[in-house]
Design a protein around this nucleic acid. Sequence first.
DNA 1: AGGGCCAGTGTAAACGTTTACCTTGTGAAT
DNA 2: ATTCACAAGGTAAACGTTTACACTGGCCCT
Lengths: 355, 355
Amino acid sequence: MSVTIRDVAAYADVSVATVSRLLNGSKAVRTETAERIHQAIEILGFRPNIVGRSLKTSRTMMLGVVIPSLANPVFADTVSGIETETRQEGYTLLFGVSGYDADDEIRAVEALLRYRVDGLVLTVVNPERNAALDLLDASGVPYALVYNQPSRPGTTTVTVDNETAGRMVAESFASFGHHRLAMISGRFSASDRASARRDGFLAGARARGLADPVVLEVDFDSHDLEGALASLFAPEAGAPSAVFCSNDMLAISVIGGLGRLGLRVPEDVSVFGFDGIAVGAHMHPTLATVVQPSREMGREAARQLVGRLNGGLPAGPVILPYTLRSGETVGNACQPSPTVSRAPDHSVQQGKHAP
Amino acid sequence: MSVTIRDVAAYADVSVATVSRLLNGSKAVRTETAERIHQAIEILGFRPNIVGRSLKTSRTMMLGVVIPSLANPVFADTVSGIETETRQEGYTLLFGVSGYDADDEIRAVEALLRYRVDGLVLTVVNPERNAALDLLDASGVPYALVYNQPSRPGTTTVTVDNETAGRMVAESFASFGHHRLAMISGRFSASDRASARRDGFLAGARARGLADPVVLEVDFDSHDLEGALASLFAPEAGAPSAVFCSNDMLAISVIGGLGRLGLRVPEDVSVFGFDGIAVGAHMHPTLATVVQPSREMGREAARQLVGRLNGGLPAGPVILPYTLRSGETVGNACQPSPTVSRAPDHSVQQGKHAP
DNA sequence: AGGGCCAGTGTAAACGTTTACCTTGTGAAT
DNA sequence: ATTCACAAGGTAAACGTTTACACTGGCCCT
C-alpha cells in the first residue's frame, strides 16, 4: 500500500540493504549514492515503518507508562518529565492507566508487554506482593518505579522519604500548638506511599506526646467527603484541629467539604497536603504541603530506565529530597481570635537524601 | 528469544495457523484442540507479539494522541476521556506532546505516523494552514481534532462555541457593571481557540457599548506575570476592573500576580477564566469560568475516530455545550465597600448546540 | 606481480504473525 | 454408491525491515 524501502531502493537503483544502511548510518554509503537515495525518499514520500524494523531488531523504541490516574496533576507532571527525558533518546510513550486497581494494573502491564515496549516506568498500588510486577520480573523487561516505597530488591525506585515527611507534618502541626490530629487518606490498600506517610505521621505525633491521630480512609476519587467529614468532626469535644491529607487533591476536596460544613480553614481546622501540585500555591488560603519534585522524579526514573536499556546495571532506590512548603491552611491551634495568625517561618525545609 | 506462536503450535501438536485462528476466533477450532492449545499457552507462558501481528495486518491497534501540554489539567482530562473510550475498543494510546509549537507538532505527528498508529486525536495550534495536518491528510490516516475551531472541511472536530462563550463573558462582566475590560491570553498564534474567545469577547463588549478591551498576550507557560500585570494596571485612571483570561491556569496565575501587586480579587479586579478545571471550584475565591466538558470532549473525539476506523464516514464538527460557572472572582464594579458583593444568580447557563 | 585490505554494495534469510488456498474426513442428500 | 457441503486443520507466502555473509574493485605493500 504505502511506499516501502523496496520502492526507494528500486527508484534509486540500489539494493534495499544500502537504503537501510543509509537510514541507520550503520555502514558507510558513497555520498553520490546517498544523494540519489535521499532524492528517492523525498520524491516518493517514504516513511520508514517502525513496525517492520521492530520486528527485526526486537526493539520497539516504545516505553510503557502506567499510572493510577491522570486526574491527579502529580502524575501528569511525572509523565511530562518522563516524556521530555525519553523523547530526546528517541523513545515514544505507550500509555496505560490502572485506576488505583491491582487487576487493572495487571491488565495494563500485560497489554504493554504485548506491544513489546522496551521498558516501562510505573506507579503501582503496592510493590510488595504485586502481580503486575511479578509479570514484569518474569518477562525480563526492565522497569523503574516512581513514588512507590522501595521494597523489591534489585528494583529501581525513585521516590521521596514518605515516612520522614509524614513525621515532619506531625512536627509542624505540633509546633503550631495542635493536640488533636487526624489524617484523611486514600485507601492504604491502594497506596503504599499513603501508608508510609501515615506511619511517619503517627510516629511523629507519638514522639511529641500527642494522642494517636484519628485516621480516615476514603476513596481516591471521592469528591464529596461531607459525610466522612461530618462524622469526623461531629464530637465537638474530640474533634481534631489539624488534618493531614495524603495528597493535595484530597486536601483541596477536604477544604471544600469543611467549608460546606461551616468550618473555616485555618481558623477552625488546619490542613496539610502532600505532593506540592502547582495550584496549591495559587489558591487562597495557600495550601501547606510536602512538595515532591514530581517532574524531576519522572525524569529521574526515565533516566534510570534508559540507563539500564543502554546496558547499565539496575540502581538501587533513588530518594529525592522533598520540601515543606508552608501555607495559609495551617494556623495556630485554640485561638479563636478573628485575626489571622501569622505562621512562624517554616518554609523550604530540605528533606533527607538517601543513606 | 521469547516463546512464539510456533512454540505453542509445536507443543500442542498443531499448526501455527490453528493457534492463530484460535487466538483471533477467526475460524472454528475443535474444543479438544482448543483445550490443548490453551494448555500449551499457559505452560509456555506465551504472549502474542503485537508487532508481528501489526506487520501482517497493517493495523497496530495504537491511537496517537498529540496535545500541547500535560501541565494544563484540561488536556489531562481529555486524554483520560480518550483513554477510557478507546481502551474498551482494544486500543492503546501512543503519546506526543507539541508544547504549543508548530514545529514540534510536525515532529510529533511524523513520529506517530512512523509507528503506524491507526488514527489520532489531537489539538493543534491552528488547524488552518497547519503543516502537521497536511501531513496527516496526505497520509490518509484518520484523525479527530479537539478544542480547535472547525476550519478544515471534512475534518472531524470536537469543540465548543468559543466565540459565543467569549461573548457571554463580556455580557457577564457588563451585567456586573464593569466598563473597562481586559483580556489576558496565551499567544494567539499558538491557539486558534484563544483567538475565537477574544473575538467573541470584543464583540460582546462592543455590543454592550463598552470601550474595546485591552488585550494582552503572554506565553502559555509563563508563571510570573507581574511585569505584564503591572503595566496593564499602571495607569490608575484607565486600569481595567475586569479581566478575562483565555484559560483557567492563566487565570490562577493572574490572580496570584494581582495579589502580589496588592490588588484584591474581586474587590479591585474581577477575573473570569475558561476551561472549568476542577480546582477552580475548590479554590477561594472560587473561579468564575466557562466550563467545557473536557473529559467528554476527549471521549467524543475518540468515539468519532473509532467510528471512522470502523468504516464510518467523517462527521462534521461536533459542538458540545459549555456552561458558565459563576464564582467569587467576579464582583460588582466600582463599589469599594469592604463587604463582599453578592453575585446575582448566573450559574449553569447552557451553551449553544451545533446548528 | 601477487597478496591483503578496505570501502561500498548486493543477496537472502530472518523476525512473529495472519490468511489465502489446499487437503482431508465425515455425514447428509441424492 | 456417488456426490456435495462443510468443519477442521495444514502449508506457505506474505508484511517491511535489518544484517550476516559474500562479492567486487581499487589501492597499498612487499
